[in-house]
């Protein structure tokens, strides 16, 4: 996989790369160059399959990562193309023109992360959620526990005692350096 990584570097400028397994490599590239790279890989290098498209929320860095996984059915090699976009008003270029199934992936990411793919046919159309009002739920700052407590309250009469705290209280554990 070294050759293809080298070629990508030469053609598309600085990238971040890593060979994860003999048949799986990762490439990090700036968002503007991602789709040109994907197109080139599909059209000239046999990476004709879009295996999946996924998003990762790096909330601490204020970024979303998009990961397109391409497959070359000839060699069975896989390339993971990663790109980080701004978490504020996130948007990325669609690949639905290159791969029909990308429509669903882009629809789902739009729904679950709030990343939009202008020009992709089913943007804004609910896929898994219907009538969802909250923030896109796969974002890291969506509070699952609060959601559950609000919508699906637990069984009544349950009371769990945390052993660690309980022992401290029962045996008079105290601190002397802090009030």
């Amino acid at each position: 996989m070294k050759e293809i990584l080298k070629e990508i570097e030469e053609r598309f400028g600085p990238i971040w790369e890593r060979v994860q397994r003999p048949k799986l490599a990762q490439v990090g590239i700036e968002p503007a160059k991602a789709v040109p790279l994907l197109t080139w890989l599909k059209e000239h290098r046999g990476y004709v399959t879009l295996v999946h498209l996924s998003a990762v929320d790096w909330i601490e860095q204020g970024e979303f990562q998009l990961t397109w996984l391409l497959g070359n059915p000839e060699t069975e090699e896989r390339l993971m193309i990663c790109s980080r976009i701004d978490r504020e008003n996130p948007a990325a270029e669609t690949v639905s023109g290159l791969w029909p199934q990308a429509v669903t992936y882009e629809q789902e990411i739009n729904e679950m992360f709030g990343v939009s793919f202008p020009g992709s046919p089913r943007q804004g159309v609910p896929f898994i959620l219907e009538g969802w009002k909250d923030i896109p739920p796969m974002r890291r700052d969506f509070d699952t526990v609060a959601f559950v407590e609000k919508h699906i309250p637990g069984r009544e009469g349950r009371k769990h005692i945390d052993t660690r705290t309980y022992i401290g209280e029962k045996f008079g554990e105290k601190g002397y350096l802090h009030d």
Binding site: P137, R140, T144
Partner: peptide, 13 residues
């Protein structure tokens, strides 16, 4: 789809 959504991916995070 959506009738069976149990948010497994989210739960695992």
């Amino acid at each position: 789809v959506g009738y069976l959504h149990r948010a497994f991916e989210k739960l695992m995070e």
